[in-house]
Design a protein around this nucleic acid. Sequence first.
DNA 1: TCGATTGTCTAGCAGTGCTAGAATCGATCC
DNA 2: GGATCGATTCTAGCACTGCTAGACAATCGA
Lengths: 192, 192
Amino acid sequence: MSVQERKERERASRERLIVATARELAEQQGWDAVTTRRLAERIEYSQPVLYSHFRGKREIIGAVALEGAAEMAAALRAATSGADGRRSRVAALAHAYLEFAERNPAVYDALFQLDGGLAFAREDTPEPLKDAFAALLETLGEVAGEGVHPALFTELFWSALHGLATLTRAGRLLPEGAGQRLDLLVERLAVL
Amino acid sequence: MSVQERKERERASRERLIVATARELAEQQGWDAVTTRRLAERIEYSQPVLYSHFRGKREIIGAVALEGAAEMAAALRAATSGADGRRSRVAALAHAYLEFAERNPAVYDALFQLDGGLAFAREDTPEPLKDAFAALLETLGEVAGEGVHPALFTELFWSALHGLATLTRAGRLLPEGAGQRLDLLVERLAVL
DNA sequence: TCGATTGTCTAGCAGTGCTAGAATCGATCC
DNA sequence: GGATCGATTCTAGCACTGCTAGACAATCGA
């Protein structure tokens, strides 16, 4: 049985290599540059190997998204755990969210813009995605205000952050006002 | 000179046909289905004709976006003009924005998600885009609150709307809570 | 009616995601 | 150790993409 175990380890290792390489390539040159040929060349295998791990390019994007979701959840929790008081926790969360989006644009796209074939806001939503939302909820639920459902408030706050992140990166908003917009968002939306 | 004028009219007419067909096709089957071949076939010309009007597919998307921006501005103004009082004007604006996004997903994508080669938030931004933002500003500037720059407030409110629109359509948010999220947004963000 | 110019089309490029079937590798058994 | 056979990987190719060079035809002015 040891031979088979080794093979499975090697397979899993190669799968991680594919995901990591796709992510790296996407961060370097954008998702358009992540073609099956280029990806195959970088991992030093032929194209069809990719299809023995994933159904297609979409699933590779989905794998990067899941990896990113876990990282984002960790980043958000790290940011809020170091802050005292509701106001600074919310501000730290919002700041960490936008920073993650800015530093990992390709991962952010895989998560929220591209089609990675993932199910959202459902029973069968993958755990990392649920957990990333949970990380938002932990902090934002505290400031939803009287009679407002914490999850609903979190969705709204998240939408605003998402709008800021995407419009800024797409050149629809100038980066100059980013700080002020963020302050205003926290001040107005949250009940502190 | 009449001959040349007729030719120019015909050319302009064909250009409108291209844009209208691209939009129609995108709304019916998504932007992925808008290929140069399919588009050429629908307008009953060969592919190269498209390139005598536009530099490439990107510019066609941009043309659809400009058309959409004008329509959106009109829709927003129509919605707010029929409402009395700040609160109902803002609510009507927000509702009209999300409705436009939902009813014209392809146009909305061309405007805010895809690369149509357009300049945003700049001096040389095309007039229709400036005007669409102006339409938002007219209503939202009234409720920015003391000491808050109207344009900055408008950008934030717009970001929230954009986040709601895109996350909902991408399946990241369930449509059920849409009404409540919108109410909460207006109530919290605007100073009424 | 002729020549020139304009406009349009056919055919083709290099690239894409994905797959069938050939070739090769490696674990197992005698 | 060498043959066998199954799993794995590769080569080659499909139909498609955006885009363009160069051949062709229609239209205009003289």
